[in-house]
Design a protein around this nucleic acid. Structure first.
Lengths: 175, 175
DNA sequence: TACCTTAATTAACAATTGTTAATGGAAAAG
DNA sequence: CTTTTCCATTAACAATTGTTAATTAAGGTA
């Protein structure tokens, strides 16, 4: 997620592949993230808890780097959970290996920066839709921009991703 | 007023200071950002237009770097506007100078990166509140975390910043 | 298959937020 | 100082979204 855009072969050198089922918890709230993941197949959901329920902040499907940003970066207990939404194949990259990787590549810092910038503009787009569109239009936009998510992710997760309740999503879909 | 008046008195190697009134448009939608600003005093509002109205994405008060991110970075016409919300003193840093500066001082690049990371986690927090809180609680949180904004910024701008209409903000304030 | 658990749908009703319009006040302009 | 413009407030009503609960559908497991 916050890791630079390195290619797959480099990942293979420093990480290990694992195969897990749907619903596998990769990181729990309160734990310090010690690995980053690269999604080969399947997908991961990043979410947090309110008093009442889960809220999904992001989905990561194939070819995405995933980690709980601030926990991984600052060595602090994560406030988020990471969980697979499908049977998945992942590369696990331990933190220290990632640092080796950093020292290996000279312009890694630039790449890391590019990654940050990309992620930032993604979030900005997300903020814009939340600030300016109603639920129906937010869903319509998601259908247009991320049909893969619509197809593969459970509706209750999609609902929280666009800031509404599952029942509301169901209602606006029936029109 | 569209073009800031330039105060020549304070000039350093890479930028110059300007003094402008409230409502000064520093960047217009459609133009390519060629400068970054540093707010010495006063404040800047970054916003965009929907069909109907303006939506404020961010406020920058003292000691903030400001630019229309993607326009500045990618040399593309901006989709945002930048406008002062108070009489302000700003440091203007032309793009080429900034890049020269970066290549000279790797320290600054680190600072820039830290800035990116900071901004990213700000946006994540912002997303979280939009996804999980209702308008009343979003306002309450802003009061707690950014009392400076509450004090200094017009309510109609604050309203759009938390994703509601000015009349709704007025209503929930009267309780 | 039958059983069990979870997800999605539907509907009635409640709560929140948007819309429109009118009013008063504060700040800017003359 | 007076006039004008913009902003905040208020209220009535409309539209959207949340809540609760019941029902159906779907998927997994014995």
């Amino acid at each position: 997620m916050i890791i630079p855009e390195i290619n797959k072969s480099v990942v293979q050198e420093f990480g290990e592949m694992i195969s897990v089922d749907e619903g596998c918890v990769l990181l729990q709230e309160g734990n310090v993230a010690k690995s980053t993941y690269f999604v080969l197949t399947g997908g991961i959901r990043l979410y947090f808890y309110t008093d009442i329920d889960q809220v999904t902040l992001e989905f990561f499907l194939e070819n995405s780097f995933v980690s709980s940003f601030s926990s991984f970066l600052n060595n602090k207990p994560s406030t988020y959970w990471l969980e697979t939404i499908e049977k998945s194949e992942l590369y696990v990259i331990p933190k220290d290996n990632l640092q080796k990787l950093y020292s290996k590549s000279p312009d890694l810092k630039d790449q890391y920066m590019k990654g940050l910038e990309q992620r930032l503009s993604d979030y900005i787009m997300r903020l814009q839709t939340l600030l300016s569109l109603n639920a129906k239009d937010r869903y319509a936009e998601l259908v247009k921009t991320r049909p893969d998510i619509i197809q593969r992710v459970k509706q209750k997760y999609i609902a929280s991703y666009i800031g509404i309740k599952p029942e509301s999503l169901s209602r606006l879909r029936s029109k």
